[in-house]
Each structure stands twice: as structure tokens, then as C-alpha cells.
Simulated scan of single mutants.
Amino acid sequence: MKITVIGGTGLVGSQLVSALRALGHEVVPASPSTGVDLLTGAGLDEALAGADTVVNVSNSPTFDEASLEFFRATMNNLLAAGERAGVGHQVILSIVGVDQVPQLDYYRAKTLQEEILKQGPTPYSIVRATQFFEFMDAVLSWTADENTVRLPSTPVQPMAAADVVAALAAAATGAPLGGAVDVAGPDVFALDELGRLTLSARQDPRTVVTDEQAGLFAAVEGDVLTGGPGARLAPTSYKDWLGAKR
């Protein structure tokens, strides 16, 4: 099978390219560094030539309102190029609970991406993942100073990027779902407690202060960022991942 990975040189995309090649597939990584511009469509026809499946793990450069136009333009461009190339399966990476947080611009943008894909001409699959372990540093940095990190107690169920890659590889090599599958880590944490666990493991002396108004995830109500009863649980625990990083 020939598979094009859009965003194939990033954190998830590069691992996905390697995983699919290890399974014996012909894989084309596509990104700005390989001459592909999703916003203009430049290079897409060449990158998709002969592809059976396209996996889109590209991301907006911002999390604000501009992300809406990014995902609108790029999804439309990719679907049009895929139709010209005769692609039989379009796969995107999305977020668990994405359609339940309309107060966040980025989540509305990802929901728009999903809707455009659903209404497009090509059979599709959506892999919705929870937050990545690898993004915890960014989450901590949003509301940190020299002595404290302020975090809300929002429930989260994070997972390793490598486990996201495994879910994407399974979707890419399987039949189109015509819907979404949720994947999540094995454990649910309050975000403030996850922050404390992270700092302790790294022997970081800063204190986590619970602040329900702090950071991006303060706007999220309830447990919408957790996998729920229908999610497929990934094998890697956060504590094991932290230990391996040490």
C-alpha cells in the first residue's frame, strides 16, 4: 500500500512514517520541508500521486481564531488533491471531546476540519486522541513563573505519542471507518495533580497551585477530555513514560 503522511516530518508524523515503513508500506512524508504547502496546495498533487491512503497529522501554527481558516483551507485543499489523485481513504488526527468545547478557538477549528472531511468525497477515518504526554512541558509553561505553576483540576487522560502513532497506523492500513475512534491513555488525572507528578519526577522544586481559571484547559468543563467508556486504551502509563525519559 502507498500512504502519504501530511505533516510527515513532525513529532507524530515522523514516527508514523517509520512505523508504516516497518510494516512494509511505501510511505511518502509530506511537509513544507519536502516542498508541500497545504495552505496553497503547492506540491500536493506530486505528494499524493499513486497514494491509496492519506494520513493528515498537520497542525495549525496558532491556537487562536486563525486556526479556523488554517483547517478550512488545508482540509479543502487536501480533499480536492486527493480526489484528483484517486485516493481511496483519508485519515485525520483529531482530539477526544473536540466538539464539546466550542469556547476554545482551536477546538472549534478541529471540529470544522472533521466536518469538512465528513462532507467530502472520499471514505474517511478520524482518530481522536487525548493530550500527548509530550505536550506536558508546554502546558506547564503557560502559567508558570520561577516558583509556581498554576493549573486547573480539569480531568485529563493523556497518552504517549508512540501510542497515538500505533492507532493512526491501524486506521491507515484498515478499512475506512466512516466515523471516529477515540484513543486515550490508561489513567485519568486531574491536571493539577499531573503537574505535581511531573515536577516531582523531574526534581523540579516549583509548587503547583490549583487555579480553576489558569491556562487553556480552564475553559473545559467536566470530563470531556477523557476517553469515556468507548475509548480504546493505550498501554503506556505516564509514570512509565516519565521513568523511561529519565
Rank of each mutant, 00 (worst) to 15 (best):
M1I: 01
T4W: 00
I6W: 00
T9Q: 09
T9G: 01
L11V: 13
G13V: 01
L16M: 05
V17Q: 05
V17T: 13
V17E: 07
A22E: 14
L23R: 14
V28D: 04
S31M: 03
T34F: 01
T40M: 01
T40P: 06
L44Y: 03
L44W: 04
E46W: 01
E46K: 10
A47F: 01
L48Y: 00
A49D: 10
A51V: 07
D52I: 00
T53F: 02
V54Q: 09
V57S: 02
S60H: 12
D64H: 11
E65I: 11
A66V: 04
S67R: 11
S67A: 15
A73C: 11
T74N: 08
N76M: 11
N76K: 13
N77K: 09
A80N: 04
R84I: 09
R84G: 08
G86M: 05
V87R: 05
D99Y: 06
D99G: 15
Q100K: 15
V101K: 07
Q103V: 15
Q103P: 02
Q103A: 14
D105Y: 13
Y106R: 10
K110A: 00
T111E: 12
E115D: 15
L117C: 09
G120A: 10
P121V: 04
P123M: 07
P123T: 07
V127F: 02
A129T: 05
T130E: 09
F133M: 12
D137V: 05
D137E: 13
L140M: 13
L140N: 06
S141Q: 12
T143V: 00
T143N: 14
T143F: 03
D145E: 00
P152N: 08
P158M: 15
P158E: 06
M159R: 10
V164A: 15
A167V: 08
A172S: 07
P176R: 02
L177P: 00
A180Q: 05
A180G: 09
A180H: 04
D182N: 15
V183K: 04
D187H: 14
V188D: 02
V188K: 08
V188M: 03
L191I: 09
E193M: 00
E193T: 09
G195M: 08
R196W: 02
T198W: 14
T198N: 13
T198P: 02
R202H: 08
Q203W: 05
P205E: 06
P205S: 07
D211N: 03
G215P: 06
L216V: 14
F217K: 02
A218E: 11
A218N: 12
A219I: 05
A219D: 13
V220F: 10
E221I: 09
G222I: 12
V224R: 12
L225D: 00
L225N: 02
G228A: 09
P229C: 08
P229D: 11
G230T: 15
R232V: 15
L233N: 08
L233W: 08
A234V: 12
P235F: 11
T236E: 15
S237D: 11
Y238E: 04
W241H: 10
R246P: 08
